[in-house]
Amino acid sequence: MKKLLLGTAALAVTASVAFAGSHSVVRMGTEGAYPPYNFINDAGQVDGFERELGDELCKRAELTCEWVTNEWDSIIPNLVSGNYDTIIAGMSITAERDEVIDFTQNYTQPDPSAYLVMAGNEGVALEGAVIAAQTNTIQASFVAEMGATLLEFASPDETIAAVRNGEADAVLADKSFLTPIADEGGDLVMLEREELIGGGVGMGLRESDGELKEKFNAAIQSMKDDGSLNTLIAKWEIGAAF
């Protein structure tokens, strides 16, 4: 047992030497188009729940962090290719993704997906309806499977616009993304029905980057323990607390 411990200790030392070299700055990759998780504010900076969370995690893990934005479609290929070191972009932990990259423990509770429809159209039968979703999201796959007519758009904005202009009966997306839109009190309302599709959201890392993963896991755990994570979740209305 002692020998084994010594072995891991030695491994940890060499790993952290290599680590210090490659990670003097940790580059945090995000999308910047998914409020309240992450968005570009009026000042042109990355802002949102994940910005505050990420900065706090880096402080606790004693890392220097830097924010980078990347298109959603190529966000994982660019991570494994080494263009940045983490993905912190409202990415749900799924089995498919977990095969290719590693996730930290989740920092949000599983966020249900919700439907947004035009006011007055709440009675629509969803199974036979036209439902808009963003291309290549878990919601898109879900709609394809439930048998409704799926209409795919490149960006979240376009899915909302599609409901407004009557191209689609409803849009399916993360509830925390739809809530501020429904709250505006305009023409769009949220349905009672919710779908539990994704797991919680976690940070994505390269599978070979175990050291960094442990640091962030520890930092997330400490934020869960002292309640500061719940404060952030409440502030940005991300969903249920831990």
Partner: peptide
């Protein structure tokens, strides 16, 4: 923008999309 450069189309899409009052001082429609 496909090549990862934040070009005029990237910013036009980003600025043009509908904004709710919670995330900006300048809320507007699409």
């Amino acid at each position: 923008f496909l090549l990862g450069v934040e070009d005029i189309v990237y910013w036009a899409r980003e600025l043009g999309g509908a904004k709710t009052a919670r995330f900006t001082d300048y809320p507007h429609a699409d």
